[in-house]
Design a protein around this nucleic acid. Structure first.
Length: 425
RNA sequence: GUGGGUGUAGCUCAGCUGGUCAGAGCACCAGGUUGUGGCCCUGGGGGCCGCGGGUUCAAAUCCCGUCACUCACCCCA
């Protein structure tokens, strides 16, 4: 055995059995919902051609410039561990020409994403996302549905404190105009901006708006807003969406500074935030991306989607003291006394399990007392005791853990009488 | 990538102005009941005090490095 212990990589961690039920709970909830809303699961590779993300997410975004797990394979191609899910889904949509077979596709995915960042609570290098994409419609009804599924998901989990933040970035005609007027506005204020913002102004001026430096905030307050640069269509789109949200009682706040970091967003962008999460407060982010499909090489196809952060959701659940329903306990624990009985116990365990019961036993020939302790801890309703006395008369002793009541039951009858005993209250 | 905090048994932590400082509670195991759990009592196993180096007669305790976690920034799920 080697002396140096190999541990998981930084920002990546193991999900031990005691928390996996929480994950299942979230996944099952999401799957049930997607099925009800008509979204089908799609699974795509975790590794893709680096170009996919560079083109899709944006060459100049932080994700692409400094957060991707990129490496060369044995033939020198540049590959990247997916940093998000949408680009892959769209790639598959285009590659398999779903636009002609199923032009309007509602898809979802669940899986790990990778970003090389400095880990922090709720932020890891491998993290899981649950995402949905509705590809092939520009209707605001879709924006509404997307937000509504996400909202419904969080409600199903039991959240009370989520805040929905909404904005519109405008269409591909509005965005450049807006960027231009931001540059003009900040042109003479350049020296007063933080160094980061000076660079942002160049690369992605929208991001200056959500800078957290006090001085920048103050300057940004007087800056032109997205609202002022929306064309008539975009304005109407946003109004319709807000009306739908209002009429279905989904509270939201319009935040003209909500920008988001991926280049592909157009028009609607939104975020669900949880106040107890600290700086990394978003549990879900999404929006419309009307140009991405075309950018990836497909026909012009509007689309919208979101992605929920698993870890962030889990942490928020903890802070709101929301828990998954408890995992089911085994029904019975078989205790044996003596070597002959130990063998019989193994056979009986197998037999009962084959009838569909969840049964546990002790494999080590421990003392009866120790086995009873195990039985007690495993939370079973019944302990089945097998010893020389019982074996001699071809029966087993069945003990109700709650009351201590015991009865002798012939081995042949166990199979039929156990379910009965388990059903009675 | 930047700055601050932390790192002692499986878990939560005490000890940290250097010299019985390797401890507590919980958990685990055993005995008290030669075949019976939950409560109680008694006993026990378990830690190269994150790792490496330095200062010193002597370091968990001071210094440096490193790794990990954590908070904020960056960014975002």
């Amino acid at each position: 055995m080697s002396k140096t212990i190999i541990s998981a990589l930084r920002g990546m961690y193991d999900l031990l059995p005691d928390i996996v039920p929480q994950w299942h709970h979230i996944e099952t909830t999401a799957r049930g919902l997607f099925q009800r809303y008509g979204y089908s699961e799609m699974r795509t590779p975790i590794v893709e051609d680096t170009q996919l993300f560079a083109r899709g997410i944006g060459e100049l975004t932080d994700i692409v410039t400094k957060e991707m797990y990129t490496f060369a394979d044995r033939k020198g191609r540049s590959l990247t561990l997916r940093p998000e899910g949408t680009a892959s889904i769209v790639r598959a949509y285009v590659e398999h020409k779903l636009y002609s077979r199923q032009p309007f596709s509602k898809l979802y995915y669940i899986g790990p994403m990778f970003r090389y960042e400095r880990p922090q609570t709720g932020r890891n290098r491998q993290f899981f996302q649950i995402g949905a994409e509705a590809i092939g419609s520009s209707s605001p009804l879709i924006d509404f549905e997307i937000i509504e599924v996400a909202n419904s998901f969080f409600r199903s989990i039991g959240f009370k404190k989520l805040v929905l933040i909404l904005n519109s970035l405008g269409c591909s005609k509005d965005r450049p105009r807006f960027a231009e007027s931001l540059r003009n506005y900040f042109a003479d204020k350049l020296p007063m901006l933080c160094p980061d913002c000076r660079e942002r102004l160049d690369r992605n001026p929208l991001r200056v708006l959500d800078c957290k430096v006090e001085n920048c905030k103050r300057l940004a307050a007087g800056a032109p807003t997205t609202e002022q640069h929306l064309c008539e269509d975009c304005k109407r789109h946003l109004d319709t969406l807000r009306e739908l949200l209002k009429r279905s009682a989904i509270e939201h706040v319009l935040d003209p500074r909500l920008v988001r970091g991926l280049d592909y967003y157009t028009r609607t962008v939104f975020e669900f935030q949880h106040p107890a999460l600290g700086a990394r407060s978003a549990v879900c982010g999404g929006g419309r991306y009307d140009n991405l499909v075309e950018q990836i090489g497909g026909p012009p196809t509007p689309a919208a989607g979101f992605s929920i952060g698993m870890e962030a959701t889990l942490i928020a659940m903890e802070r709101e003291e929301l828990h998954a329903p408890p995992a089911p306990m085994p029904a019975a624990f078989i205790c044996s006394v003596g070597e002959a009985a130990l063998t019989e116990a193994a056979l009986l365990t197998a037999k009962l399990r084959n009838t569909g019961l969840s049964v546990e036993m002790d494999y080590e020939g421990r003392s009866l007392k120790a086995q009873m302790k195990l039985a007690n801890r495993s939370g079973v309703r019944l302990a089945i005791i097998l010893g020389d006395e019982e074996l001699a008369q071809g029966s087993a002793r069945v003990r109700e853990m709650a009351t201590g009541e015991e009865s002798i039951i012939p081995l042949a009858d166990l199979e039929s009488s156990l379910p009965e005993k388990l059903n009675q209250k």
